[in-house]
Structures are given as structure tokens and as C-alpha cells.
Design a protein around this nucleic acid. Structure first.
Length: 126
DNA sequence: AATCGGCTCAACCGCCGGGCG
DNA sequence: ACGCCCGGCGGTTGAGCCGAT
């Protein structure tokens, strides 16, 4: 888990967290529920204004990331099977660090998950 | 039982390209 | 034709977990 090492107004320079009252860090089940329900009802997109509409104290990018990587029904989550690992290896040899391209060819896996898997399990082998 | 170090992985950041007014 | 804004991408971070000492 990550604590927002964040002092309200002075340090952060990025657009998405420069506003006070915008939450960062790990998502709670309540937030997941809010986001999940909203996107299922209204569809994906319009991320920047979504948090307000959904009643979330988050920036749009954070909502998008959370939905894309964890809440979307199509994401599989969990252990990478041997054939999936093999696919990742072959695709990476072919494409390099184009994680989203690789993810696009592995059903149910996200670019973030594949990138993590590569960095922690596979890259040390090279 | 307590501490230490390595690893995991959810979530962050900055940057960039494309679409749209 | 040309900025501006947004979403998408790749790289990076660090709290918490877990096994070793």
C-alpha cells in the first residue's frame, strides 16, 4: 500500500493532485463501489469530470487507472500461467517495452500487470 | 521474540500524440 | 492552421508482506 507522502498545497506540482481535497493512495472498497457502479451505468470516458459526477474525491486519471486495471469486468487478475509467461516472453522479444501492445494480445491482462510481471520475474533473467 | 532486507505490485508521475474547437 | 486539453503510455516508487537471521 502507498501512503500519500503529500503535504497539502506546497510540494506537489502535478495538475492532477495540485487541488486540495483530492485523495491519493490506495482505493477503499467504498470508492471501488462508487466508481464501478458509475462506470457500469454511464460507461467509460469523460474521465476528468467523472470523479465529481460519481461522488469521488479523486482525480480523473486515478479513476481511469483503477477502472482499467482492477474494476473492469474483463480483467482476469491473479497468477500468470506458464503459457501466458511464454507469450509475454515472445511478444516482448518482438515488441520491446510496448506493454499496452503486449497486453492487447493477452486476453484479460493489463499493461500494468504485464509490466510488473516482466520487471519482477522476467527481466532479472536477462 | 524482534529486527532486517528483499520482493511485490498498486498507484503514482511526467510526457507525448491525437482530436477537436 | 493551430493551440489546448485529455487520455494513454512507459517508467518509477515505496508501504507492507514475508522469510531469514
Amino acid at each position: 500500500m502507498r501512503a500519500p507522502s503529500f503535504s497539502a498545497s506546497t510540494t506537489c506540482k502535478t495538475p492532477c493532485c495540485s487541488k486540495v481535497g483530492i485523495k491519493r493512495g490506495p482505493w477503499t472498497p467504498e470508492e471501488d463501489e462508487l466508481l464501478s457502479n458509475y462506470v457500469k451505468k454511464e460507461g467509460e470516458g469523460r474521465w476528468r469530470t467523472l470523479p465529481k459526477r460519481a461522488g469521488l474525491q479523486r482525480c480523473g486519471k486515478s479513476c481511469r487507472l483503477r477502472w482499467m486495471n482492477y474494476l473492469r469486468p474483463s480483467v482476469k487478475r491473479g497468477h500468470i500461467a506458464p503459457d501466458e509467461e511464454d507469450l509475454i516472453l515472445r511478444l516482448h522479444r518482438l515488441l520491446g517495452n510496448r506493454w499496452s501492445l503486449i497486453a492487447g494480445r493477452i486476453p484479460g491482462r493489463t499493461d500494468n500487470e504485464i509490466k510488473n510481471y516482466w520487471n519482477t520475474h522476467l527481466r532479472p533473467l536477462f
